[in-house]
Design a binder for these strands. Structure first.
Lengths: 225, 225
DNA sequence: TAAAATAATACTGTATACAATTCTAAAATT
DNA sequence: AATTTTAGAATTGTATACAGTATTATTTTA
């Protein structure tokens, strides 16, 4: 194992398995656990100060979410993300984000539009200050509002899951030269078209945004291609 | 509980949790468990002749798949599918099936095309014989080949999951007057456009197919609308 | 008689114990 | 020396036991 997990705090009402799941997921996303690394139940349980039961249940969930791979009787391994995976994920996201944007253009409330605008401003400030943590935070909040506005909970959760699966490597594309300002412009175009209730334009803006994100991600992984 | 589950057979190499999961899922799909019905771990375990542990893990998986709803410390209930759910699911499927059809038009092999054709013929025979079981079987096989041909495993599994979530009520739309022959015509149009590698037409055929399926399903649930 | 309080019951959440399998490594054989 | 065999250790799969909480029923009180 690379680093170590923080012990689980029991302040929450949530079941332990949820806390354990979130903790392991976070560790995978932030790189504490490397791709391909084996995750052993007893070890994880000891580190977090819980028994194997909630750890097992957490791992089952992470498997469904695509963060780990389980081989029966052999163990659990942190999923290794490949070029193929990225291609698959963005093929789907291009399509789903387009859908979400179109629905949002039809269903968003004035309050939500205001929130989007605010996030847009915050995003600009975060970029100016080069505050990476803030950037990621605002970006996440921005998309959260957008997906919420689509009024389709399943769509929201499917996209979120796909987003999370590339989170561990998204940092690289974020730091790609010029990508951040480009991202902001794309976000602005998206908000504009949604604000004017233009479904077609919103869809196209979303498609462009996702396609560009994919290209940047690909370039940042393999500059040759 | 309505009926009862068959005891788990241990002939397979699969972990018990998988067998238990499939058994419960099947029972939900075929109506052995009704929507809203409470699922109790001890009872399920006893009926299948296993302990609570694999049952719990199976339930966790079914929750992720959307077949059951868990309320912490309160229990697990068979998910109740609503008009809202159907709308959500078909909004997504319209988009994903369009994607899958487009990709299939680009990536399908001649062998797969042949298989699709064969399924098309079988479907016609099954309709002529009014063999409902066969119809469902061939329909499933048909779509399976199609999604496989998209060469996107995630897309395949997301669509399959969405399909399964309405399986329990799909029987009704199947028996809607005239829907079966309509379905076959739509399938044929889809195969034709894929065979001629026409991405646009394949997408449009898929969209039409899903939209019609939704409309029929809605009508069969609520004839007034 | 109705409502509230309390006790009993039953279920879920978590921990631990046992069984079965697989991996590791050491020893034996070719 | 290399390969196979075999014994041990470690890990996952499953079962069971215990703890905590929610529900239900009963009793008490207004």
């Amino acid at each position: 194992m690379a680093g170590h997990l923080q012990p689980i705090k029991l302040d929450s009402y949530k079941p332990l398995r949820e806390l354990v799941c979130e903790s392991i997921r976070q560790a995978i996303i932030d790189g504490t656990f490397s791709p391909g690394e084996r995750l052993m139940e007893i070890q994880l349980a000891d580190e977090m100060g819980v028994s194997r039961t909630p750890v097992r249940e957490a791992i089952r969930k992470l498997e469904l979410e695509g963060f780990v791979v389980m081989i029966p009787r052999r163990g659990t391994y942190v999923a290794d993300i490949s070029i193929r995976d990225i291609t698959e994920i963005y093929e789907i996201r291009t399509c789903l984000d387009e859908l979400a944007a179109g629905l949002a253009a039809e269903r968003i409330t004035p309050e939500e539009l205001e929130t989007l605008d605010r996030h847009l401003v915050e995003f600009g400030i975060a970029i100016a200050e080069n505050d990476m943590e803030k950037i990621v935070e605002v970006d996440t909040a921005f998309h959260e509002v957008l997906y919420m506005a689509s009024r389709n909970a399943r769509l929201h959760s499917i996209i979120n899951n796909l987003r999370e699966q590339v989170t561990s490597i998204r940092g690289r594309s974020m730091s790609y030269p010029g990508r951040l300002t480009e991202t902001m412009e794309e976000h602005r175009a998206l908000v504009d078209s949604i604000a004017s209730r233009d479904v077609e334009r919103a869809q196209s803006a979303a498609r462009v945004h996702i396609e560009n994100a994919e290209h940047t991600l690909m370039k940042s992984i393999n500059p040759v291609t």
